[in-house]
Amino acid sequence: MNQRILYPFADFGGAVAIRPGDDAAGSAPEHDNIDQESEASVVTYFELARMMERASRRFTGLLRAELTKLGVDDIGPAQAMVLLAIGDAEVSVAELLDRGHYVGSNVSYYLKQLGDGEYIDRAASQRDRRSARIKLSEKGKQLCDSLRKAAGAYERVLSHGEQDRRNLETAFQTLHRLELVWGNATRYGI
């Protein structure tokens, strides 16, 4: 595993060297000589963030293609992600904002589109009439089920065994840790 990702505040000179031949966990074969360090490529937090952004754009394109296959043309990938974030729960707008990476004004727009398309049911909260509770309508549930089935096909292409599943879990855990560390650094500083 990449030490910079596991230990984000450790001093590794600003970057992590990945030598040619390193496996997915970041460890070099034992026969490699440490002198090959000069051939190393450098992975920085900036490069990692750019990779995550590119992967997110690719996933958005994939969602757009799936929506087209399903004949859904009244919402886009961002709205589909909101539906998936709602899931089987009944949530408030604040809870939804916490589950995704939306700006408040964007989520209001998305929810209006989803309501107009009858993908969600929106009801005033019993406690606070100014607040709304949101849940998927039957149409929204059906779309989420279809998108999950399509995702299953891509997972089968990517996952060829237990090691791939463990790698995916490790990637998720690492990205989750980065989210926490970067979020805390933004709020509280280092």
Rank of each mutant, 00 (worst) to 15 (best):
N2P: 08
H101V: 09
R165W: 05
T174Q: 13
L136N: 05
E53W: 10
R148N: 13
G104H: 08
C144D: 00
E118L: 10
A153L: 14
Q173N: 12
I75E: 01
A49F: 09
D128P: 02
E155Y: 09
S125L: 06
W182M: 15
E169N: 08
T170C: 06
A65V: 08
E118P: 03
D121Q: 12
K139Q: 13
I34L: 13
L63V: 09
G87V: 03
V91Y: 04
V103L: 10
W182P: 00
E66Y: 01
A40D: 15
D88N: 12
F172E: 08
L62V: 10
F59L: 13
G13K: 07
I75Y: 07
A55W: 04
V91H: 03
L158A: 15
L158F: 12
D145S: 12
V93D: 04
V42N: 01
G100E: 00
D35C: 01
R57L: 11
L175W: 01
R165C: 07
D22I: 00
I86W: 04
S38K: 08
R19P: 00
G115E: 14
D35F: 12
G26C: 10
A124S: 13
S56M: 08
G104S: 11
S131N: 09
R99F: 04
T44V: 03
R130G: 13
D88K: 10
M52I: 15
R127D: 14
E37K: 13
A94K: 11
S131I: 11
V42Y: 13
A55N: 06
N106F: 03
N184T: 05
H176E: 12
G152Y: 05
R187D: 08
L114W: 02
D88L: 06
G189D: 05
A150E: 08
E37W: 08
E95N: 02
H176P: 00
I18F: 12
Y110M: 06
S159M: 14
F59H: 13
A25R: 14
A171H: 07
R148Y: 10
S125E: 05
N106C: 03
G189R: 04
E47S: 15
A28P: 04
T170M: 10
N167L: 15
S38Y: 09
K69I: 04
K141P: 00
E30P: 15
G100K: 00
A89T: 01
L67N: 03
A123V: 15
A28W: 05
E47N: 09
T44G: 06
T60I: 08
G21C: 05
H101S: 13
T44M: 01
R148S: 10
D11P: 06
R50K: 14
K139S: 09
L62R: 14
C144Q: 02
F59M: 10
K149T: 12
G26H: 09
N33V: 05
I5L: 15
R122S: 08
Q142G: 00
S131K: 15
A25H: 11
G189V: 00
R148D: 11
A185V: 07
A153S: 13
S131P: 03
R177V: 02
Q163R: 15
P29A: 05
G152K: 07
G140Y: 00
